[in-house]
């Protein structure tokens, strides 16, 4: 199980490096699609069919929007101007990596080994939850019963993003 996942995640890392360093923006977007669809396979292996369904739909819609944007404007990633501050940014990214590594080390020491997760708070959501909420899909039960506030907040963010897109993109003002 762990070996299979590692191979898929390794391919995803290679694809993301390709996406970042590709000269053509269209091929960068295709490589990003590879990462997204690899994530779908990871979700299926991790027994999360809800996430797999939603990720495959969302990745497709994202690809459509991104390809439309790039085909509308320019496809090349300029390289006319040499980057003078290249050294500074690379040093900054390594510094960031170091800081994140410290926090990652701290977080990982508090976790269980992969596959031996102990249910702490989720114990209440798993045992006897179906009798309380009446929903056979426990994810839907957590989403809309135990953690309703969270989901309402996320729906509000989606609403705000749609309004923001309309506001930013409008060329001609409304009468």
């Amino acid at each position: 199980m762990e070996v299979m996942l590692s191979v898929i995640i390794g391919f995803m890392i290679i694809a993301s490096i390709t996406a970042i360093y590709a000269k053509d923006l269209l091929s960068a977007i295709i490589a990003q699609g590879f990462v997204g669809y690899g994530l779908v396979i990871c979700f299926l292996i991790l027994r999360a069919p809800d996430l797999a369904i939603i990720q495959i739909v969302m990745e497709t819609v994202t690809l459509i929007i991104m390809v439309a944007v790039v085909l509308d404007s320019s496809r090349e990633e300029f390289d006319i101007m040499p980057d003078k501050t290249q050294g500074v940014t690379i040093a900054a990214s390594f510094l960031f990596a170091l800081v994140l590594l410290i926090y990652f080390n701290r977080a990982i020491s508090g976790l269980d080994r992969f596959g031996n997760h102990t249910l702490r708070m989720s114990e209440a959501y798993v045992t006897g939850a179906a009798e309380q909420t009446g929903s056979a899909n426990l994810v839907a039960g957590v989403l809309w019963d135990f953690r309703g506030y969270d989901t309402l907040g996320e729906a509000t963010v989606l609403f705000t993003a749609a309004i923001g897109v309309i506001t930013i993109i409008r060329l001609v003002g409304k009468k």
Partner: peptide
């Protein structure tokens, strides 16, 4: 009910995926 993966992270990620698409669309605009 004892042999299930944890539903709580899945519920958190489920909503985050939708938000990711919306914020991506806004950045692209």
């Amino acid at each position: 009910a004892g042999r299930m993966v944890d539903p709580l992270p899945q519920a958190m990620v489920l909503t985050a995926i939708v938000i990711a698409l919306a914020t991506n669309a806004m950045l692209l605009t």
